[in-house]
Design a binder for these strands. Structure first.
Lengths: 185, 185
DNA sequence: AGCAGCATGTAAGTGGTTACATGATTGT
DNA sequence: ACAATCATGTAACCACTTACATGCTGCT
């Protein structure tokens, strides 16, 4: 399966919740899939045009001429189901933080500690964000929310893992390396 | 900083451990950075050519004419240090597994359970691999190995998190959804 | 002689970002 | 009037993968 198809999944998935403009599709993806997916306008508009060409979406009547509200068609729902069913090929991992840390001996004193402190902060911020999202979606026990909760739980697990890892590594760093990040602990 | 620079980091980092051919650079990256980095030949050879042009690497004498062994120059070491010091911009996340799971209600019965079972297996396999790598590098307390151990620990933490998450989600799935993955537990 | 693995490289295509250009709508 | 934001789209560029083409080396 071409990776391009994944953008179609995101767009069709967003439209499966209701008619939207391209602009709103992007916002919807950012709000609901934000911590594990992302699309830029440069992807969304051409994808919407291709999906319309293929009959998977169609313009819906809207009050203003300056915007095009798209709705998913029956063919589009089928297409979404088909795309979702295709096997999932994960692209090779690329983690810039680990790439830098791996060559930590080539870095100036304190730089590895700074990298780890950044990772710690990122994880903390992510956990705060997830807590807010959890608050928003509690009380809803629809099937959709069950899956949404699973993806949220993934983010939480990984963020907690990163947080624990960063703290362990900071604690294990020799004092000489910790100078750049200031006093810690 | 252009993302291209990260390939340079990987290549220069590999060469910082000793002279190598492009083929060997790729193998070295795959072996030591494998769980968080990857380069294809289509990236490595042009990058080596560009680095040679820039004076960061140079061909070293080798027995055979059919291969070019590169070694890092003093300029190359400087360049590596400079590249490593540049701020790290993480590209937007894209997790195909979560994208599929999020739209789980559009999937046939059992498909979400299959996705989770796959994730569980992946994490188990990763942990087995990491255990082997740990065995290989224990007993070496050089600074290089300290950083290598940190990147390994990251992989372990994240894999354990994914494993726990997948099992929790599988346990939480209603029975009707578990059929496709067979009896579990 | 033949095969597996070493080794180098290029071309085509994909997926994606970024920056730019443009204009409508809404709120103050 | 002005600013912010909604809204659409394109062009240029970048990073990367994949497939292909080619040949060498070492082993059996």
């Amino acid at each position: 399966m071409p990776r391009r198809a994944q953008t179609e999944v995101a767009v069709l998935g967003a439209l499966s919740t209701g008619p939207m403009t391209g602009y709103e599709v992007r916002a919807a993806i950012g709000e609901t899939l934000g911590h594990f997916w992302h699309e830029s306008f440069g992807q969304i508009y051409p994808t919407l045009a291709a999906l319309e060409e293929a009959g998977a979406v169609r313009p819906a009547p809207s009050g203003r001429r300056s915007r095009t509200v798209y709705e998913i068609t029956a063919d589009g729902v089928d297409r979404l189901r088909d795309l979702l069913s295709e096997p999932h090929r994960a692209p090779p991992a690329r983690n810039g933080l680990l790439l830098r840390l791996f060559f930590g001996t080539h870095l100036p004193d304190g730089a590895p500690a700074d990298l780890l402190a950044d990772a710690e902060r990122q994880a903390e911020a992510a956990l705060e964000h997830y807590a807010e999202v959890r608050d928003e979606i509690t009380g809803d026990d629809s099937p959709e929310q069950a899956y949404r909760t699973m993806t949220l739980a993934f983010g939480e697990h990984v963020a907690r893992a990163q947080l624990a890892w960063a703290r362990e590594c900071l604690a294990a760093l020799p004092d000489a390396e910790g100078g750049g990040a200031g006093a810690r602990g």
